[in-house]
Computed example of a mutant assay.
Amino acid sequence: MTPADLSRTVLRAVRRAVDEDALRAPVPARVRVERTRPGGSGDYACAVALQLAGPAGLPARGVAEILRERVAGAPGIGRVEITGPGFLNFTLDATTGAETRAARVREARELGLRYGRVTTEAGRLQRLHHPREIRAAVLAQSVARLLRTQGGQVIVSCTEEPGPRWEELGVRTGPHPGAEETEKTVESAGIRAVPAGATAGALVDRLGRDAALWGLQRPAAHDHAPLGDDLLVQGETNPLFLVRYAHARARALTREAARLGLTAGYDTDVDAPALHTALADHPGVLATAARLHAPDRVARHLETVADAFLDFHGTTPPLPVGDEKPSAAHRSRLALAEAAGTVLAGGLFVLGIHAPPHV
């Protein structure tokens, strides 16, 4: 069960409770579930009961009890607990884990860059505006791409004329809208960040496009963006290098497998829990980063995926070694590697960064 599946399951429970008149509250458009924080209970947590308590005129734990009765026993859910003031905590059913992992790997390989995209915000027109500063401009472009992964329509504008050489960092922006045009948008939001302290041209000349984009976006917008030469280091101390290297290794495995006549197919479950978790988290990371206007969350998630993939690659070779003959296990490992490469490419695309097949 993916986070999206769990979210839909909880939302169905809310609708059922309302239909049965056990809960008198408006049904939300969506329900957000998140990975349980360290020290928490279960695999995922949801605060929908706290959200509905006020409109329902009930204590949050009472709402949680109503929902737990309607979620417990659903396919893929092993246990449902109520913690704190009314959080629902879900432990997934391990017996369905292998099937869920297989479905996720296949989905990622089939959808490619569209993996993790939804249509939650379909038809919603949003405008982002930012000051005449390159870091804010770059963040606005990535926030727009994130909102589009959720199905939204986005227009980006600058409060003044764009700066010189902004296009070299992928910035495409229109003029600031007049009052009449602004009224047509469902939502208008300003994108601000601690200034980069350098011009687009200076950053591109010194770091190149991709390293500059990573350096501007990896820290949270309210933090200073370190833009030193360490962004150019070709080694494990540089997170950007590791992310791009992991993507290149995944693509290299596909090329080498083709040379060996080996095709990918997730036929047997692969023991790589960290990598499976990272792939499962990808849709939720996109949704949260879009909601919070926080591309830095995508960058950090890519580091997690890269680390998990490189550990998997080092301990469980996807391709035959020495005199080893290709097997179903190799086919499955290769499929998992290709899914990881897809997530890395998709995340880099959101950040406007090239995902090279070679490093």
Rank of each mutant, 00 (worst) to 15 (best):
H224Q: 10
E69Y: 03
L253R: 09
A140S: 08
L113T: 15
L88E: 06
L203H: 03
A299K: 09
P59M: 07
A287E: 15
R255V: 13
L216N: 06
P318L: 12
S41E: 14
G197I: 06
E338V: 00
I155A: 13
N89I: 11
A47V: 05
E121Q: 09
A274L: 13
L128H: 07
V118G: 13
Q126T: 14
G208V: 07
E34Y: 07
T119R: 15
L169S: 05
T36D: 08
A248C: 08
H358G: 02
S332T: 00
D311I: 05
R333K: 09
P320D: 10
H276S: 07
E160L: 07
V171H: 14
A328E: 14
P295R: 03
R114M: 10
R109C: 05
A25K: 15
H282N: 00
A248N: 03
E34P: 03
A329R: 11
A108S: 02
A299C: 10
A45Q: 07
P175H: 05
E34T: 13
G341M: 00
R192T: 15
L113H: 13
G57L: 14
V71Y: 08
T96H: 09
T2H: 11
P85H: 02
R206N: 13
L302I: 05
G215L: 06
P356A: 13
G112I: 02
H293V: 12
A189K: 06
Q51I: 10
G341F: 00
A196G: 11
A140W: 12
T277S: 08
A328F: 08
L286P: 01
G54M: 05
A308L: 00
E256Y: 15
T237Q: 12
G215T: 09
A355K: 15
A22C: 14
R297D: 07
A220D: 13
T9L: 07
A272H: 01
D307Q: 11
L240H: 07
A340S: 11
R300P: 00
G178M: 09
A102M: 10
G39E: 04
L240S: 04
G174Q: 05
S327I: 10
E183C: 10
V298Y: 15
R106M: 01
